[in-house]
Amino acid sequence: MLKLDKICVSFRSERQDKLFGHTKQQVLFDVSAEVKKGTCLGVLGESGSGKSTMGRVLCGLLKPDSGTVLLNGVSVYGSKEGRRKLQNQLSIVFQDYTTSANPRFRVADILKEGLSVRQRREKETLDQEEEISRLLELVGLPSGFADRFPHELSGGQLQRVCIARAVACNPELILFDEAISSLDAHTQVQIMDLLLELKEKLGLTYIFITHDLTSITYLCDDVLFLYQGRVTEYLSVKHLNETKDTYAKKLLESIVVFDTEEAS
């Protein structure tokens, strides 16, 4: 569905060379990956590994220096059609749910943001109140939450609202950028269970960017290890124990198993 082929990205350095002026610092080196329809690709890396830059490339916000991003065989950065397709098919859920939801908006208004995108794109007339109730139910919240403000919700509840907003525009692909890292472990499990349920029910495809290998093993089908801008390992989660990569082994040694019984 989505394919990256030898992506390279560099940024202008703030340090200035006396002879050549500003220099460039490369942050991604020949990164390649493939996200198959109906699966979840985990992108794992520590701070500074380049995973956020990779996320920006994936969602159409940062054109790489070289390499290609293909969505269903169409180049995202090489054609207007590809960019438009990505905009129509991709939603994003961010780490900081407090800043990604307008504090002055009620939950209904937050969800209307996603519904408005869907209405413009598909040119359909929606009963917004009915859709808002359906979306809240879909993410496990009572319809009465539509009248609440973000500060009246817990972190987990507000992130469910952000997930509902992402789903509201009928995407095929959702990118999660550290979407559960600000939540406590118990709530993380609940949100991941919700994501698995939505993926199955709605036929969604996920990209899950994180620094936490534990959530990768819980949620993802494949995992890409990113270290200093380079892919050090790329394999199925089922075969993680077969890795020969030193960096992957180091992270595997620190893995913590979620208590799923407590979460239920």
Results as ranks from 00 to 15, higher is better:
Asp5Phe: 02
Asp5Pro: 04
Lys6Asp: 01
Ile7Phe: 04
Ser10Met: 00
Ser13Gln: 10
Lys18Glu: 08
Phe20Gly: 07
Phe20Asp: 05
Lys24Gly: 00
Gln26Leu: 00
Val31Pro: 04
Ser32Phe: 00
Glu34Asn: 13
Lys37Ile: 13
Lys37His: 15
Val43Met: 10
Leu44Ser: 14
Gly45Met: 05
Glu46Lys: 14
Glu46Ala: 04
Gly48Asn: 06
Ser49Asn: 01
Ser49His: 06
Ser49Leu: 05
Ser52Asp: 02
Cys59Met: 12
Gly60Tyr: 15
Leu61Glu: 11
Leu62Asn: 10
Lys63Met: 11
Asp65Thr: 10
Gly67Met: 05
Gly73His: 01
Val74Thr: 12
Gly78His: 03
Gly78Phe: 05
Glu81Met: 04
Glu81Phe: 04
Gly82Arg: 08
Arg83Trp: 11
Gln87Val: 12
Leu90Lys: 07
Ile92Gly: 04
Asp96Val: 15
Tyr97Ala: 11
Tyr97Ile: 12
Ala101Phe: 02
Asn102Glu: 03
Arg104Thr: 09
Arg104Asp: 12
Val107Asp: 02
Ala108Glu: 12
Ile110Arg: 04
Leu115Ser: 10
Ser116Leu: 09
Val117Arg: 00
Leu126Phe: 13
Asp127Pro: 12
Gln128Thr: 15
Glu129Gln: 14
Glu131Thr: 11
Glu131Gly: 12
Glu131Tyr: 09
Arg134Cys: 09
Arg134His: 15
Arg134Leu: 13
Leu136Ala: 03
Glu137Ser: 06
Gly140Gln: 12
Leu141Phe: 04
Gly144Ile: 13
Gly144Pro: 10
Phe145Leu: 05
Asp147Trp: 11
His151Ala: 10
Leu153Gly: 06
Gly155Tyr: 00
Gly156Arg: 08
Gly156Ile: 08
Gln157His: 12
Gln157Thr: 14
Gln159Ser: 12
Arg160Asp: 07
Val161His: 01
Val161Arg: 03
Val161Phe: 03
Ala164Gly: 08
Arg165His: 11
Arg165Ala: 14
Ala166Ile: 07
Val167Ser: 11
Val167Tyr: 14
Glu172Ser: 14
Leu173Trp: 00
Leu175Ser: 06
Leu175Gln: 03
Asp177Gly: 13
Asp177His: 07
Glu178Phe: 10
Ala179Arg: 06
Val189Asp: 11
Gln190Trp: 10
Leu195Asn: 00
Glu197Tyr: 04
Glu197Lys: 15
Glu200Lys: 01
Leu202Tyr: 05
Leu204Tyr: 05
Leu204Phe: 07
Thr205Phe: 06
Thr205Glu: 03
Thr205Pro: 00
Ile207Glu: 14
Phe208Ile: 13
Asp212Leu: 08
Ser215His: 01
Ser215Asp: 03
Thr217Gly: 03
Leu224Met: 01
Phe225Asp: 04
Tyr227Met: 08
Gln228Glu: 09
Gln228Ala: 07
Tyr234Leu: 09
Val237Pro: 06
Val237Phe: 07
Lys238Asp: 01
Glu242Asp: 14
Thr243Val: 05
Asp245Asn: 15
Tyr247Gln: 02
Tyr247Leu: 01
Ala248Met: 09
Val257Gly: 02
Val257Tyr: 15
Asp259Arg: 14
Glu262Thr: 13
Glu262Met: 14
Ala263Cys: 09
Ala263Pro: 06
